[in-house]
Amino acid sequence: MFSAFLSVLRKELLLAFRQKTDVVTVLFFFLIVSSLFPLAVGPELSTLKIIGPGVIWVGALLCSLLALHRVFESDFSDGSLEHLVLSGEPLSILVIAKIAAHWLVTGLPVVIVAPLIGLQFGLPSTSLILLVGTLLLGTPVLSLIGSIGAALTLGVRGGAALTSILILPFYVPVLIFGAGAVVADLQGLSIDGHISVLLASLCISVALAPLAIASAIKIALE
């Protein structure tokens, strides 16, 4: 099982390395979307500071959606998704390998770039650290939940737009508590609750999302 897990992970990372433009596109999308807000709202730092955490979180969320559609789609069309089933290993475990690789190449870069954008919104350094922390906890949840939508819409017409419609409502709690933690900290409130909820959603989604994804993939393959 472990060697199968590793080979899936290695294959995904090698593929991402060969197709660097995919990663770069997601990053640029994040930068551009976040830079549009000051242009629309105005340059007053006091306003930007209030909306900053929310804007960065929505940006990260949109990036996750943008990249998600590809998690299983090419594997589905070229037949390699079948190999995951034919391996006889638990599909939900192999799915975790795929999502982990996906997060490493699309989620992690966003987390790393986020403080730069935070600086543009005039966030203080404690907020920047907290922003990175909440994104580290929250973006894997986005990838896990989002992959359910990606698996359900495999081979369906209008898959990318449909995935967004299915998945965005489920992103609400992560968005509320992720961005909320940074805002609450700026206002001098306690953030223990936020962090606990983010941790809990990470645990729940690691435990349950792969099961849903595995059944969705099996349904799509039939």
């Binding site: 899936v8 294959k11 593929l15 070229d78 037949g79 079948e82 034919l86 391996s87």
Partner: peptide
């Protein structure tokens, strides 16, 4: 089982494809 779709990744070489596909099988 060898199906209709070959499961080969077009960005990888033949050797890489086999080396990463076979451990799964």
């Amino acid at each position: 089982f060898i199906g209709h779709d070959d499961g080969l990744k077009k960005q990888l070489t033949a050797a890489e494809n086999l080396k990463l596909m076979l451990p799964l099988l």
